[in-house]
Design a protein around this nucleic acid. Structure first.
Length: 431
RNA sequence: UCCUCAGUAGCUCAAUGGUAGAGCAUCCGGCUGUUAACCGGAGGGUUGUAGGUUCGAAUCCUACCUGAGGAGCCA
């Protein structure tokens, strides 16, 4: 018999169906058993009456352990007593494999234990909800950009040098005679493809060898970076707010059940509508000082500063025109004040902090050369990048969004480590 | 790199200088509507490692190891 997926069970009430999955948990009450079965699409509670099944089937049910793989046949029906609203009256059981001593029991566990068993932890309800939302967000990102005229042009993962001098890179041996580095941003390559296709985006893994040990950091994370030719800072901010509000709307539309598993406050997400507040760096600094926070003008915001600013709003706030010296070398400077850059960070609400960073790119070849020198970067290694300012340069702009930080915010959870199937963090490379 | 906290049964924790214990998981038994089911019983320990103080150390001291949170840096 064909396999029926649990999420489709409502369409099969009264029919005999076959469910192929794993035993999530089982409760027994003498002559009655309540196995909870999951198949990846959902969880359903089964009912087994001793009198209604063969002696062999009953005995086999007594053998089952948590996460044993099983195929069952039965008839689904609506039942208000069952978690999920539907229940399966089971008639037959086929044991595929008995699991032995599954380590993740239905009680609570510490984070170290769960991280060591990440390959099994993925089976739990909460992790599935988070990763389904991640998949939805990624799908929404692609749909939005594809439908807005952006061409997917992925940037390389092996790169010959740093894109931004500040962060630490993972170094690899490249056939013995050369060093390669894992990409920390597709930015420079995006500018090249944008000059070819007009509107482009890259979307892939990014690597940062920073020894950051906080709930916001991974050493390997996924970043989507749209870039537009003939665009300025204003266009980037417009794009960012349309982009984020589309993503949130998609998750609200398609993943209600998963948000419910996570006990996410939906009203907080329903507030995410354009326009987003826009705040100049200078005004943000005033806000911090009025709030009594110690802050020196000219510095970048620290985590507590971002938290303070973002908590003032019910939707993401776009802080723009940061001092040039705290931003990447390729940021265009503000004509009205050359010490400021045409940059923008989008800070997610509820204290989640920066999820997007972007801006308008430096147009002038001469000024770009000066910046490269100021940042002690090797001009020879980015000669191809400078070509983009020689052969039909145009004003252009874009941003990068860290997927895991976005997922963390939308899910309303504490730590980025749960938003990617196998997180890579400082001192944690396994499993 | 720096600061703070924590390592006791497979898991989550208790025992605060005097006989290492509970819940869950596992095994055995009971229960015809369970909701992290419940009830009874059993097995399960080099208290992270090494040293020290003490009549006596899970407990106090030193070093190291491992993990977590935070700072800086960043998406």
């Amino acid at each position: 018999m064909r396999q029926t997926y649990i999420k489709e069970i409502a369409k099969h009430v009264g029919e005999e169906v076959t469910i192929k999955g794993w035993l999530y948990n089982i409760r027994s009450s003498g002559k009655l058993m309540f196995p909870q079965i999951r198949d990846g699409s959902g969880i359903i509670q089964g009912v087994v009456f001793k009198k209604a099944v063969s002696e062999e089937t009953w005995k086999n049910f007594e053998l089952l352990t948590q996460e044993s793989s099983i195929v069952v046949k039965g008839k689904p029906r609506e039942d208000s007593r069952a978690p999920g609203g539907y229940e399966l009256d089971i008639t037959e059981l086929e044991i595929v494999q008995i699991a032995q001593d599954y380590p993740i029991t239905p009680k609570e566990h510490g984070i170290e234990f769960l991280m060591d068993h990440r390959h099994l932890w993925l089976r739990s309800r909460r992790q599935q909800a988070i990763l389904r939302i991640r998949a939805e967000i990624i799908s929404a990102v692609r749909t939005f950009l594809d439908d807005s005229g952006f061409v997917l042009c992925d940037s390389p993962i092996f790169t010959p040098a740093a894109c931004e001098g500040t962060t630490t890179l993972f170094e690899c041996d490249y056939f013995g005679d050369e060093k390669a580095y894992l990409t920390q941003s597709g930015q420079l390559y995006n500018e090249a493809t944008a000059m070819a296709f007009g509107r482009v985006y890259c979307f892939g893994p990014t690597f940062r060898a920073e020894k950051s040990k906080t709930r916001r950091h991974l050493t390997e994370f996924w970043m989507v970076e749209p870039e537009m030719a003939y665009a300025d800072l204003e266009d980037v901010m417009n794009l960012a707010e349309e982009f984020l509000s589309y993503i949130v709307a998609r998750v609200l539309d398609k993943r209600q059940e998963d948000l419910k598993v996570l006990e996410r406050d939906i009203s907080k997400l329903e507030a995410i509508k354009t326009p987003f507040p826009r705040l100049q760096y200078d005004d943000a600094v005033k806000m911090l000082k009025e709030g009594g926070l110690e802050f020196e003008y000219g510095n970048d915001f620290g985590s507590p500063d971002e938290t303070y600013i973002s908590q003032k709003y019910d939707r993401p706030v776009m802080v723009h025109r940061y001092p040039a010296k705290v931003k990447a070398f390729y940021m265009e400077s503000d004509q009205e004040n050359p010490d400021l850059s045409l940059s923008v960070d989008v800070l997610a609400p509820e204290g989640y902090g920066e999820i997007i960073g972007g801006g308008q790119r430096m147009f002038s070849l001469e000024k770009l050369r000066e910046r490269i020198a100021e940042h002690n970067l090797d001009e020879a290694s980015v000669d191809w990048y400078l070509d983009l300012r020689k052969y039909g340069g145009v004003p252009h702009a874009g941003f990068g969004m860290g997927i895991e930080r976005c997922v963390t915010w939308i899910c309303g959870i504490e730590h980025v480590r749960e938003t990617i199937p196998f997180p890579r963090m400082l001192y944690r490379l396994k499993p």
